[in-house]
Amino acid sequence: KTVHVNGVQYDFDNPEQAERFAKEMAKKAGLQIQFHGDQIKIE
């Protein structure tokens, strides 16, 4: 899974790890999470 945070890309082999990371980042920055198939976007 790939997580995009403000244009920066983070790759994870483990989907659960990717989602946990995305939730942490979104919570910290007060941003929205969008799921697009294999990609998670935080903007």
Results as ranks from 00 to 15, higher is better:
14 N>C: 15
1 K>E: 02
35 F>A: 06
21 F>V: 00
41 K>V: 14
13 D>Q: 05
15 P>D: 09
10 Y>W: 05
12 F>S: 00
32 Q>T: 12
2 T>Y: 06
10 Y>E: 00
19 E>F: 15
24 E>D: 05
15 P>K: 11
39 Q>A: 11
9 Q>E: 04
23 K>L: 14
34 Q>E: 10
25 M>K: 01
9 Q>Y: 06
18 A>I: 02
33 I>G: 03
20 R>D: 06
23 K>S: 07
9 Q>H: 06
38 D>G: 07
22 A>P: 00
42 I>W: 05
2 T>A: 03
36 H>N: 12
17 Q>F: 04
41 K>F: 15
17 Q>A: 12
27 K>S: 12
28 K>W: 13
4 H>N: 08
36 H>Y: 12
41 K>C: 15
9 Q>M: 09
17 Q>P: 00
27 K>E: 12
43 E>D: 09
1 K>I: 14
10 Y>A: 00
31 L>K: 03
34 Q>G: 06
2 T>D: 01
33 I>S: 04
17 Q>K: 04
32 Q>M: 10
4 H>M: 14
12 F>Q: 00
2 T>F: 04
5 V>T: 01
40 I>M: 07
42 I>T: 06
41 K>E: 08
1 K>W: 15
4 H>S: 09
42 I>Q: 04
12 F>W: 01
4 H>C: 15
26 A>C: 14
19 E>P: 00
32 Q>N: 10
23 K>C: 15
3 V>L: 06
29 A>H: 15
42 I>Y: 06
20 R>F: 10
29 A>P: 10
43 E>F: 14
27 K>M: 13
24 E>M: 13
41 K>D: 08
28 K>P: 04
35 F>R: 09
31 L>F: 11
42 I>H: 06
15 P>C: 14
2 T>Q: 06
28 K>N: 08
36 H>S: 10
35 F>G: 05
19 E>Y: 15
9 Q>V: 13
3 V>H: 02
37 G>Q: 08
20 R>H: 09
28 K>I: 14
25 M>C: 15
38 D>I: 08
8 V>E: 03
20 R>G: 03
36 H>C: 15
36 H>F: 13
3 V>N: 02
18 A>R: 04
19 E>W: 15
22 A>F: 10
11 D>Q: 13
12 F>G: 01
12 F>Y: 01
10 Y>H: 02
10 Y>D: 00
24 E>W: 14
25 M>D: 00
19 E>H: 12
26 A>W: 04
43 E>Y: 14
25 M>G: 00
41 K>R: 12
30 G>Y: 05
16 E>L: 07
1 K>L: 13
15 P>G: 06
25 M>T: 03
30 G>K: 03
17 Q>S: 09
7 G>N: 02
32 Q>V: 13
19 E>L: 15
4 H>A: 05
37 G>I: 06
6 N>F: 14
41 K>Y: 15
12 F>R: 00
9 Q>D: 03
24 E>R: 10
4 H>F: 15
21 F>C: 05
6 N>D: 08
5 V>G: 01
27 K>W: 11
35 F>H: 08
23 K>R: 14
37 G>C: 11
22 A>T: 02
6 N>H: 08
30 G>W: 09
30 G>A: 08
32 Q>Y: 05
17 Q>W: 04
29 A>N: 11
40 I>W: 07
41 K>P: 06
5 V>M: 11
4 H>D: 04
2 T>V: 08
14 N>W: 03
17 Q>I: 06
36 H>L: 13
24 E>Q: 08
28 K>Q: 12
32 Q>K: 11
10 Y>G: 00
24 E>A: 12
36 H>V: 13
28 K>S: 08
20 R>Y: 09
18 A>C: 08
28 K>H: 10
19 E>N: 08
16 E>H: 06
14 N>V: 03
2 T>R: 07
32 Q>R: 10
26 A>D: 02
26 A>H: 01
21 F>M: 01
24 E>Y: 14
37 G>P: 07
10 Y>S: 00
37 G>A: 06
13 D>Y: 02
33 I>M: 06
20 R>Q: 12
29 A>F: 15
4 H>Y: 15
18 A>M: 03
23 K>E: 08
16 E>W: 12
10 Y>I: 03
13 D>F: 03
6 N>M: 10
14 N>I: 03
43 E>N: 08
10 Y>C: 10
40 I>N: 05
39 Q>E: 10
6 N>W: 12
31 L>T: 07
11 D>K: 14
33 I>R: 02
26 A>I: 04
25 M>L: 11
38 D>T: 10
42 I>A: 05
32 Q>G: 06
2 T>M: 05
42 I>G: 06
37 G>N: 08
